[in-house]
Amino acid sequence: MGVRNLLIGTALAFMALFLLLPLVIVFAQALSAGFGAYLTAITDPNVGDAIWLTLIIAVIVVPANLVFGVCASWCIARFKFAGRDLLITLIDLPFSISPVIAGLLEVLLFGLNGLFGAWLSAHNIQIIFALPGMVLATLFVTFPFVAREVIPLAQEQGNDEEEAAVTLGASGLQIFWRVSLPKIRWGLFYGVLLCNARAMGEFGAVSVVSGKVFGETDTLSLAVESLYESYEIQAAFACASLLAMLALVTLVLKAALEWWHRDEIHAVRHKKAA
């Protein structure tokens, strides 16, 4: 009994110290100059632009990774093909590479002196220090989130239900929309949440390829740094509080959906429905 309480106490204390306390401090600092100053900070036009840029990147990156994740899980779970294991390994690559290096790689490819640099500048296309570069960097970093969530699920679930659907007269498209997609939809949902959180919060890779022009190529997380470095501490924490709120909303949304669909989630997570 004593050991149990000790362990529970340790875990709770650890969580309070490293998860809860920073969250409290972010909001305390953001509101340190009063609610008026807080509102002024987050309604600053440059901060507004940063929010907008962050949203645009997420809106492009999350659906792209969603589609890729579904395609990858579909073919990896269903077919045996040459390069299948290689594909599974490659999907993990962004996890094992530092995001800063990912950003640097992009500069080496698309930068002015990069591999495609001459061609790009000749055609007047700017990737580095502009939105396309930031989207690509975020895409690279968030690549595994959906796929990693969905592929094991699809592999474990196998192909039985699809075969049953065939015998019941379903066409390929009907099977995809009514069977294959719904049975992985909770995995997809978690993957999308994680992917979205990372896409909006990504710093390292985006920092390398962004021009860091506050109000033009700063995302919300880059804005936090810009403001902090120009000694606008309270404004920096105000921006950070927006990111923190995003995380909280994500968590609440996830918990609410899980509670609402608890029967189905339990049913689907069961190793084999059969």
């Binding site: 039985d160 239900e161 049953a164 069977v179 049975k183 049913a267 059969a274």
Partner: peptide, 17 residues
């Protein structure tokens, strides 16, 4: 689809969702 066949699988293969 056009065969008019009902099939019951050993491991049921019910749609889990």
């Amino acid at each position: 689809k056009e065969r008019g066949v009902g099939f019951v699988f050993q491991h049921y293969a019910l749609f889990r969702h």
